[in-house]
Amino acid sequence: MDSKDITQAQVVGALKKQSVINMIRSSLPFIGLIAMCIVFNIITKGSMWNSRKLIMNQVYVVLISATGVFFIMSMGGLDFSQGSILGIASIVVCLLSGKNMLLAVIGGIAAGALIGAFNGYFYVNRKIKSFIVTICTMFLFRGFIKYMASNSPVAASMKVYDYDTTAIKLSITAVVLIISFIVFRFTGFGINLKAIGAGEKAVKFAGVRTDRVKFLIYVLSGAITGLAAFVNIVKNGSATANVGNQLETQILIALVLGGMPISGGAKVRFENVIVGSLLYVVLTNGLIMMGLTTQAMQLIQGIVFLIFVAIFADRESISVIK
């Protein structure tokens, strides 16, 4: 009888310990965000809080496009072409902005969706790993951007500045986030996505058209980044040859900082996007305000990134990234 009691106590103890670890893990990004805000505000003597509007201004593009990549990573894929998608879509928005603003928005989304479909075709139909495909398209479309915008930036119509208000940018971001949250959390599509990340073959045998889902996700993610391009142009007014440069890395870092397991699957949560993007922007701005050079910043970002990957890697279901 005694030994049974002991094991019972041990079990409860072990369980408590495990759930405590899990709780710390999942709340780490939140704690990190709050801690970051406090620390940087103390170091910069409150100047970070004073420039919050400026900082928020940088969140929108990352946050919107990270939502699309979040879907891709949930099913265990990767996308390195986001920066180039944003660049091409930004140029399209600029070119169309003179004619009609609605047309410009739709054009940007369509351009993004088209590149997403291009990625999806090679990934799904030609069965090439997603990170290879998207690294190729990253260079391919970066080439286009350089060709279009090297001599002089592609300027948008002056009318875009009318849309450069916090209300518009914030509401576009909020709409994207709310719809994405509902799709991810409360539709079969969302459940299928996570399941594909956890075990594609079995999901296929459960009747899910996995190839179709995978293709659609790349199109969707491209379209979302196409919408982000509008916000980007509203903010900047023109597209230079460097438009969207390194956005893909920023997104990846943001998602990982938000606690996203890099192999996707069942442990993915939607708040990863929001907390991660905020954390990323606070971190970079904080470092800039502290007067760090770009080189030193990259160094620190690399270290922080590595630490978070090490914490959140889902070692139980380590599989090849698709």
């Binding site: 459940i191 996570k194 399941a195 956890a198 075990g199 073959k201 079995a202 999901v203 045998f205 459960a206 699957g265 069942a266 889902d314 139980e316 279901s317």
Partner: peptide, 13 residues
């Protein structure tokens, strides 16, 4: 384990 079940997924899903 490979074709019938998604192992790292809940019983519910």
């Amino acid at each position: 384990d490979n074709e019938s079940l998604v192992m790292n997924q809940s019983i519910r899903d």
